[in-house]
Amino acid sequence: MIVIRTPGGFSLRVHARALTVGAVGTLLALAVGVLAVGHGDYPMSPADVLRTLTGGGSAAEQFIVVELRLPRLVTALAVGAALGLAGAVFQALVRNPLGSPDVLGFTQGAATGALLVVVVGGGSTALAGAAAAGGVVTGLLIYLVAWRRGVHGYRLVLVGIGVSAILTGVNGYLLTRAPLMEAARAMLWLTGSLDGRGWSDAGPLLVALAVTVPVLLACGPALRMTELGDDAASGLGVPVARLRMVLLAAAVLLVSLSAAAAGPVSFVALTAPHLARRLTRAPGTNLLPAAVVGALILVVADQMAQRIFPQQLPVGVVTGVLGGGYLVWLLATERRAGRL
């Protein structure tokens, strides 16, 4: 724990290990990012990439880096960070290490929106918009059904699971209604992919991050108090019901817009906060480390998806398989620790 104090009576307290993890994670994510930008049909050395990014390099290199490859990287970083943050918020809200948007139906809602567009027919902009709308509407629905003098963790969980099961049925049905070519495209989207993402995909999510991150960070201390239980948190002066609403809204916004940008990339929101907690060894919720780890996971997974297999895979396959494995391990250890 590091404390910084100024003569004016201001003071900041920082968890030293969390700070280190955050810094190292950011550097790693950027380093992998530079490698990622260098990778492709026109390979570039990291030095070339850095030179081009700082304004040097030929016009062709400028085009390749800034217009073709950088948007994908930025989308990956933004989606990863957004999912990491949202996952950390959800896990804190429902007080369970498995409470992630993949499990609670928000992701399925975004998928329903997108599939509707696929069945009706529409471009990728409409698809992204519908996905975002689907996520937000589902979030609203779950909140309304689960609301009863405030939203409690377990009711949110059960309602989310119920909604998720319904939507999975609906999604499966929508998938059978689409022509095969369209269905294949929809499957690709449903898995979550960063392929061919441009600046217009990253834009809305970046704006959402710019708005929600300050809000979430301001809520951070109060969120940590709710770990002591609702009663104790109220006793310490935390307006618990209002806090939940704000956090839920922010997290749903982040999840929906990341689904709009890259499709529902699975398990990043579940694993990032865990890994962050393990690395920082700090108790309770750590929003920023979760965001950093989320961004790192997604950038690395995207590189794996592009390089390991002969054919390029969508990044969702990699996160799904890795995340599924992590989940099984998590179920085993959490069970042993009695937290499940």
């Binding site: 429902v94 498995l98 409470g99 993949d102 499990v103 699975s266 398990f267 969702g316 599924g324 499940l340």
Partner: peptide
């Protein structure tokens, strides 16, 4: 919740 998480994993 554990079941739903498994479901999500298997579904993906």
């Amino acid at each position: 919740l554990a079941g739903a998480a498994l479901n999500a994993a298997l579904y993906s």
